[in-house]
Nucleic acid binder design. Structure first.
Length: 572
RNA sequence: GGGCCUGUAGCUCAAUUGGUUAGAGCAGAGCGCUCAUAACGCUUUGGUUGCGGGUUCAAGUCCUGCCGGGCCUACCA
């Protein structure tokens, strides 16, 4: 039994996320966590909300709520949605937790002791009307290069020229529109990750099994231009982790907080601490996942994230961990994803384009989304959601191939033998053929799941479902029954056991349907089929079951057309 | 501008890292079955692998030049 630590990139707090966010990290992480648990491993699956930063403050202001209250409510909302999608986090934490405050401050103190923190005085734009310093992107003005009047302070979207906010002609706040801006001197802490470049480089180079997407992004940041740059890890904001050196005040840093990208990944660790506290456990219980000197040396740590998160997880966070000089667990494998597009364009939060997570759950059960999204996960390149593909995939795979198989077997049994597993008869060559095919396919499924090959796993699972229909067609118990009911009984006994096997194998993808099948079969035996023959004899002759309701009803053309219309434009 | 990824059947994707005749699912066509959610099974149509050069006994795979799509480019996260 292995110990697997799994983290999903933590979703930002400023609103409800769309399906792209789900398929890019949380859903595949959940698939892997469920599978690893099903295989009997000890799993710690952690996620959280990422709550700090300017956008959170602005979203709270827009909602006319104090930021603490806004974040607390939105955390609850996101937690409910995660529950709705059956994301099986061991803990869903908050980056604003006291545990994260303490750990972030502690690690900053350690980095300072190691000489890896530098104080830098810099000039930032302050807006009197907004009462805050403005990040470059929140300053708008006329581009000095092309004259575009909505250029942002970091870059002109029109001519793509990189800008400094002070380059802008007639700069104004993007928040309030105020032109009452002032350049102020302010002091910030920088993480001297440039001094760790070689260490990070050799670490990345040692990860030869990582996806190209992951390592190429890391190498680009390490070697591009002047190489890895130092990074500011503090901000002039109210909402965040106050800058401290461990428990001590940090002279000159009063009123400042750590930058959200500094404290967000630390929350992976702190959330595990939150988990321990929430379950009345000791520090040792969470430290054994994270400290290699306290039991974590045999932990395999896997991170899931969208490609936009890769630099922070391959460079900044490892620099924090390594630089601390303490034996915190470094990530062993990073599974990164491309983006999911919506019907020919990007999902857009601001334009309300695409399907948001709360809306998805309102129109269809979680399993529909889980199956389609995972079987189309954007692994090798961006992938695309269209209503036609979604309808076709869900109807064919879930309703016709799997759902109908369960239906035809249980209903046939009920009509010919009653609602219990029939006895008598023996198995023949057709059954041997099925068993050898299942054995081969299930081992392939395990290999793909172990390798986190999401789409290939889904395709193999589907092929396993298809094998059941092929078997029924060649065994044809409905004709055999007319002349040889004993043999038909043996065939149906095997088929009923096959349904249980499907429930077990499918659990990581479609946990609700899996549970409903096991309930209908009136069994709690969900053990993994290490041996197929054994697994196909779990339900003995005489075992009672019930015929389940339709597992997956089909998406109609009318529904599809209605939803395509409903989600094309602005969110209600 | 720079870097990276990507382009394979009408659609969504494979192809053991250079090795037989480029494979699956969906959609289309034909046949079969009648237990089942008009479901299932079998057979089948469909490709000059974006385009042009090159290396090689051998190229979807490597090199090069175009064309198209996408992402990142460090103060949104």
């Amino acid at each position: 039994m292995a110990r697997i630590l799994i983290t999903s990139a933590i979703p930002y707090i400023n609103g409800i996320k769309h399906l792209g966010n789900l398929v890019g990290s949380q859903l595949p992480a959940d698939l892997y966590a469920r599978y690893m648990r099903d295989r009997g491993n000890e799993v710690m699956f952690i996620c959280a909300t990422d709550e700090h930063g300017t956008p959170a403050e602005l979203a709270a202001a827009k909602a006319d709520k104090p930021v603490e209250e806004f974040c607390a409510e939105m955390h609850q909302t996101q937690a409910r949605i995660a529950e709705g999608f059956r994301l099986s986090f061991d803990h869903f934490g908050r980056s604003s937790s006291p545990q994260n405050h303490a750990l972030t401050q502690h690690l900053a103190g350690k980095l300072a002791e190691a000489g890896l923190i530098e104080e830098v005085s810099e000039r930032q734009v302050y807006s009197h009307a907004d009462g805050r310093f403005l990040p470059d992107r929140y300053i708008e003005g006329t581009c000095p290069n092309c004259g575009y009047d909505k250029a942002r302070g970091d870059q002109c979207e029109n001519c793509t020229k990189q800008l400094d906010p002070t380059d802008l002609i007639e700069p104004r706040s993007a928040i309030s529109g105020s032109t009452d801006l002032e350049v102020r001197e302010t002091k910030h802490l920088y993480l001297r990750q440039s001094t760790m470049k070689d260490q990070l480089d050799s670490w990345i180079n040692s990860k030869t099994d990582w996806p190209v997407l992951t390592t190429s992004i890391a190498k680009k940041w390490l070697h591009d231009g002047d190489g890895l740059q130092d990074r500011g890890i503090t901000r002039d904001l109210n909402w965040g982790v106050p800058v401290k050196k461990g428990n001590e005040d940090w002279p000159g840093m009063e009123g400042k907080v750590f930058y959200v990208w500094f404290d967000a990944p630390i929350e992976y660790i702190a959330a595990t601490h939150e988990w321990a506290d929430a379950h009345n456990k000791d520090d040792a219980d969470w430290l054994r996942w994270w400290r290699t000197d306290k039991g974590a040396d045999d932990v395999r740590y896997v991170q899931f994230m969208g490609k936009d998160n890769v630099p922070f997880h391959t460079l900044s966070f490892p620099a924090t961990i390594m630089g601390s000089g303490e034996p915190w667990k470094l990530v062993d494998y990073i599974k990164s994803f491309n983006y999911l597009n919506y019907d020919g364009g990007q999902f857009s939060t601001s334009q309300g384009r695409g399907v948001f997570q709360d809306q998805a759950l309102e129109i269809l059960p979680a399993d529909y989304w889980r199956w389609w999204l995972l079987s189309h996960a954007p692994e090798s390149s961006d992938s695309e959601f269209t209503w036609e593909n979604f309808q076709a995939g869900v109807n064919k795979d879930l309703a016709d191939v799997l759902g109908n198989f369960v239906s035809r077997v249980t209903k046939f049994c009920r009509s010919k033998f009653g609602e219990e597993v029939p006895e008598g008869g023996t198995l023949g060559d057709t059954e041997q053929t099925l068993i050898s095919e299942l054995t081969k396919r299930i081992r392939a499924y395990e290999d793909h799941m172990d390798a986190m090959e999401v789409r290939k796993s889904a395709a193999e699972l589907r092929a396993i479902w298809v094998a059941g229909n092929e078997y029924l067609q060649s065994a044809a118990p409905w004709s055999v029954f007319k002349t040889d009911p004993e043999t038909a009984a043996a065939q149906i006994r095997l088929s009923l056991n096959l349904i249980r096997l499907y429930a077990v194998l499918s659990e990581p993808f479609i946990p609700d349907a899996s549970a409903r099948i096991l309930e209908a079969l009136q069994t709690e035996d969900d053990s993994w089929p290490d041996d197929i023959v054994t697994a196909l004899s779990v339900l003995p002759a005489g075992h009672a079951f019930t015929v389940p309701d339709v597992l997956f009803s089909k998406i109609t053309d009318e529904q599809r057309e209605g939803w395509a219309e409903q989600f094309s434009g602005t969110r209600e």
